[in-house]
Computed example of a mutant assay.
Amino acid sequence: MTQSQEANKTARPLLERAIQLDPGFAEAHAWLAMSHLLGWMFWGEPEEYRSLGRAEAERAVSLDPGNAGAHSILGYVLQFDFRADEAAAEFATALRIDPNHADTWIFLGESKAHLGNAVEGIECIQNAFRLDPYPPGRCYWLRGYVEYAARRYEDAVDTLRHETTYRTGSRRILAAALAQLGRIEEAKEEARQFLAANPHFSARQWASTQPFRRDADRQHFVDGYLMAGLPE
């Protein structure tokens, strides 16, 4: 669901069907929230889907206040509402419920990068990988994202070429990391492949959805995308 538009479109009706069968299924509400948020962030769905995502995440927490995953996803959604303090509180609640909840450590790592603390973010993500040594592809995507934010471009390239995330939407970050390393031809090829699957991508539109505290950190990604040949 988190890796491609096609996967997200496949997952959403299944989540909706699960909720029809069991309206109190908090996990289904939480992941439907993620589906709506990612549709808005990455795949051109209208602004209302961000609001739908927040409503579903809040519903998940209300149904099961002791569910670490529900709090974690609500925190993730809130950061993209530019409500960093509330997001941090939800992540803290999730880890209080389950200190070993790997997804929360991953999401917290990305959040720290958005707040200008990418090195701390890498530490959070390393903790997640210790807890779950064989995570799904989205974890490699976010690890590479935070490594790029920390300007650890070689690490980002290695991470984003992992088989579980390579050839997904994370390819744009791989292209940016290669460009920052001066490997322009490789960067342009990765960008070309990314655009074949994501023809409507715009660096500026992407930037408008990202909750960076500092404009320079947001621009760092935009610069990498443009250097790789992705459209402004």
Score class of each variant (00 low, 15 high):
Gln3Gly: 01
Gln3Glu: 10
Gln5Glu: 15
Lys9Leu: 14
Leu21Pro: 10
Asp22Thr: 08
Pro23Arg: 00
Gly24Trp: 09
Gly24Gln: 10
Ala30Val: 06
Met34Cys: 11
His36Pro: 00
Trp40Gly: 02
Trp40Ser: 03
Met41Val: 04
Phe42Glu: 01
Trp43Lys: 00
Glu47Leu: 10
Gly53Glu: 02
Val61Phe: 00
Tyr76Glu: 07
Leu78His: 01
Gln79Cys: 13
Asp81Tyr: 05
Arg83Leu: 12
Ala84Thr: 06
Ala87Trp: 00
Ala89Cys: 06
Leu95Ser: 08
Leu95Ile: 05
Asp98Val: 01
Asn100Ser: 07
His101Gly: 02
Thr104Arg: 01
Gly109Asp: 08
Leu115Asp: 14
Gly116Leu: 08
Asn117Met: 11
Asn117Trp: 09
Gly121Glu: 02
Gly121Lys: 01
Cys124Ile: 08
Ala128Pro: 02
Ala128Ile: 05
Phe129Asn: 04
Leu131Thr: 04
Leu131Tyr: 08
Leu131Met: 01
Asp132Asn: 13
Pro133Ser: 05
Pro133Ala: 02
Arg138Trp: 15
Tyr140Trp: 14
Tyr145Glu: 09
Glu147Phe: 07
Tyr148Ala: 12
Ala150Glu: 09
Arg151Lys: 15
Arg152Ser: 14
Glu154Phe: 11
Glu154Gln: 15
Ala156Cys: 08
Ala156Gln: 02
Val157Ser: 05
Asp158Gly: 08
His162Ser: 07
Glu163Asp: 12
Arg167Lys: 12
Arg171Gly: 15
Ile173Tyr: 13
Ile173Ser: 09
Ala175Gly: 11
Ala175Glu: 07
Ala179Arg: 03
Ile184Gln: 04
Glu186Phe: 07
Ala187Val: 06
Leu195Ala: 11
Leu195Gly: 13
Ala196Ser: 13
Ala197Met: 13
Asn198Asp: 12
Arg204Lys: 11
Arg204Met: 13
Gln205Glu: 13
Thr209Cys: 01
Thr209Pro: 01
Pro211Cys: 13
Pro211Trp: 04
Phe212Glu: 07
Arg214Thr: 09
Asp215His: 13
Ala216Asn: 01
Gln219Asn: 11
His220Leu: 15
Phe221Ile: 05
Asp223Asn: 10
Asp223Met: 04
Gly224His: 03
Tyr225Thr: 09
Tyr225Ile: 04
Tyr225Met: 12
Leu226Thr: 14
Met227Tyr: 03
Gly229His: 03
Pro231Tyr: 07
Glu232Cys: 10
Glu232His: 08
